[in-house]
Design a binder for these strands. Structure first.
Lengths: 157, 157
DNA sequence: ATAAATTAAGAATAATATTCTGTATAGATT
DNA sequence: AATCTATACAGAATATTATTCTTAATTTAT
């Protein structure tokens, strides 16, 4: 097929997922090449979708969002149209940053970031529990976070 | 105190957490100002830690890491030194992208990203279960992901 | 072995970040 | 209320960096 990632590509991805403000020149030096091939490779990685976007990572707590909660949910209705509606609703809640359909003890696992316990309770009462077909809801309140990274493991790809 | 975030700051953060490649000029235009105050505000937001870093967001699946798993863990020993050691070990596992100490049904909730089920099993057998004091281990295998964003909710800060 | 297509180097150009200077504004102090 | 001080802004000037272009080298396919 047309494209697989070679060593240089994964090295570039690895660098950019740590710090996307690195200049092409600095990356090129680290990899022992000149800027143009590095530049072209980056553009290719963007165009082909290996790099989805570039973002600023904010400090939740510093900004005032001090509480992370995971919520395990079971649903009572499992029709396709309801599941789709559920996910659509979830997408409209800015407090929820992740929503995964899972196998195991829950149907969905949500991750949510809010100011504090109070904001969390408000969310549960005035948003989440208004959704229909909601079954069991279990919260895992984060006490502390030992690791949280955007860096995925490229060592074996 | 010296600094809180005003409306303009949160607007800038909101823009940059969506797309950090936006030029200061384009941001300035959107906000109806010139580049220099925008530039200065961004530098301030970086210096004061509201912006932690800039990163490239990669496409896990495209890169070959198709499986996300959440793992709920209970520990049998809860001494402080063991908890610390546990988190240290976890930090050395590149497969694990998040590790939260939680209240509720588990002691820790881990998030892990790997190639496939096989790689997952390998991880469990050859890495995770080698840790001492491990109690119960429950896996939530992600079937599909309905939402996954880095954007935190700045509407109320 | 040769042609076609990639990949890289190096130079040239365009765009952007960054710095600087002067001006206005808001708050504090008297 | 007047003045002082600190902060934020505009606009221009400069420095860096991204981006493009041309050419040479290397690989791949035929």
């Amino acid at each position: 097929m047309a494209h697989a990632l070679d060593k240089i590509d994964t090295q570039i991805l690895s660098i950019l997922q740590k710090d996307s403000n690195r200049t092409t020149k600095s990356i090129a030096e680290e990899l022992g090449m000149t800027t143009s091939p590095v530049f072209e490779r980056i553009k290719k990685l963007e165009k082909e979708g290996y790099i989805k976007k570039y973002v600023a990572v904010l400090d939740n707590k510093k900004i005032g969002l001090k509480l992370t909660v995971f919520i395990g949910i079971t649903l009572q209705g499992h029709t396709r149209s309801y599941l789709e509606k559920f996910v659509t609703e979830i997408n409209n809640f800015p407090e929820i940053v992740e929503c995964h359909r899972v196998s195991g003890n829950y149907d969905y696992l949500l991750k949510l970031i809010v100011e504090d316990i109070e904001a969390y309770e408000t969310f549960i009462i005035s948003k989440l529990t208004l959704l229909p077909y909601l079954g069991n809801v279990q919260s895992l309140i984060t006490l502390s976070t030992g690791k949280e990274t955007n860096e995925i493991d490229l060592s074996r790809v």
